[in-house]
Amino acid sequence: MKKANKIITIAIFIFLYIPMLVLIVGSFNEGKSLARFDGFTFEQYAELFRDPDLLALLGNSLIISILASLIATVFGTFSCVGINSLKPRMRNTVMSLTNIPMTNPDIVTGISLSLLFVFVGTKMLGQRNSLTFWTLLIAHITFDLPYVILNVMPKLQQMDRSLVDAAMDLGCTPIESFFKVTIHEIMPGIVAGAIMAFTMSLDDFVISYFVTGMDFVTLPVEIYSYTKKPIPPKIYAMFTLLFLLILVLMITMNLLQLKSEKKKARG
């Protein structure tokens, strides 16, 4: 039984990673097809860095995901402090509001935001082009926020409230006690929320696809447009580099968690 479990687990991990391996191998392929390996080369990476358009798209994706996750992290963290001091009934209402973007299918979230922006922009403000960088940013902040809230909230609730009381007794203002005490206690939640928000934003396709306008396109939306023409292999090179980036981010997140757990165990 235990052995069977181990074999299934290994098989599933192979299943999960084979397509990614196919893409990574494809990034070192001389030919264009994923299906046939024609020889080893770094040419796709050179191609990638010679393509200003593609790099600009990657830049767009990074700008949106960094901005949206930063804003969502700061906004979400302060909101958590507020939500935490609400009365239980009101707090539950706010938390179910937080759950709406999590349980709604992405396609519905995307269409609803897109319709809102078009409705307000075109019908109410008379703009010709109502889907811009700013609407995309608002959409990303909106679906990033729940990830921050759901990561920070439990840490805030686990926190020993007497720490804050002690800080205030020692003469801290509420704001000082937040920055000197609370923020350190909930830091692992903030970091985890920020990283999750960032990766969700970076990889988001469905919501961006509906909310994106003509003038600001992100990488996944561009990749989707490669439906008729074949994908240039430099995209696989970019995938490989992003894979490494995400891997580093995840390892960082885990090390931070381990560190804070050790600290807790010691303290």
């Binding site: 991990f13 999960l16 990673y17 084979i18 397509p19 990614m20 196919v22 893409l23 494809g26 097809s33 994923l34 299906a35 990766t199 970076l202 990889d203 396709f205 990488l219 996944p220 990749i223 989707y224 994908i231 995209i235 696989y236 995938f239 992003l242 894979f243 995400i246 891997l247 995840m250």
Partner: peptide, 20 residues
């Protein structure tokens, strides 16, 4: 390792299945 694929481009991973 289970979470990592969730963070990688869902479009490209699906395209890899087309290749397979």
């Amino acid at each position: 390792l289970v979470m990592l694929p969730m963070c990688m481009s869902f479009l490209l991973r699906t395209l890899a299945w087309v290749g397979l």
